Amino acid sequence: MLHIINKSPFDASSLDTCLRMAQPGHALLLIEDGVYAAAKGSAVESRVAEACTKFTVFALQPDMDARGMTAKLLDGVTLTDYAGFVDLVEKHNTSHSWL
């Protein structure tokens, strides 16, 4: 399953809810303000780092770039572009957007 998070972890509980429900082997894609979770030094860094040991975690590079966060990318998070986003959706039988 592909889990898609577009809300900042500082404004919504989407990330925490997703991390509780996701199963090992699932993929997590951070988009829009959800990419704030992929930054080194953030309040959620340890939770995302732990998630990287259970799930494949991606962040949408254009959204990281737009927020000036690409240089702060947390180890274990893979950047992807829009074509990669499409590939992730095609690869996974099911996707869930956490609102």
Rank of each mutant, 00 (worst) to 15 (best):
L99G: 13
A39F: 01
V48W: 03
A51Y: 04
L2C: 03
I4M: 08
D65W: 00
E90I: 13
I31Q: 02
K72I: 00
G76Q: 05
L28W: 01
T80L: 02
S8N: 09
I31C: 08
G41M: 10
S46Y: 07
L74C: 07
C18G: 04
E90L: 14
A43E: 11
T17N: 13
D75Y: 00
C18W: 00
V86A: 15
M64P: 08
S42D: 06
A43H: 08
S8I: 04
I31M: 13
A43F: 01
F55C: 11
D11R: 13
L29G: 03
Y36F: 15
G34W: 05
T17R: 14
V48I: 14
E90A: 15
E90S: 13
G41Q: 13
V86Y: 05
L19G: 03
I5E: 06
L99K: 11
I4Q: 04
E45M: 12
D81W: 02
A49D: 01
L60M: 12
L2F: 10
G76Y: 03
L99C: 09
I5C: 08
A59I: 11
F58I: 08
G34E: 07
G34S: 09
D65M: 06
L19H: 01
N6E: 01
G76C: 06
A83Y: 04
Y82M: 14
V57S: 03
I5G: 04
H3D: 11
K91A: 15
A12L: 09
G25F: 03
R47K: 15
L2E: 04
G84L: 10
L29M: 14
G76V: 07
L30D: 02
A71W: 03
I5M: 05
D63H: 14
V77W: 07
A66S: 15
C18P: 00
Q23T: 13
A22G: 08
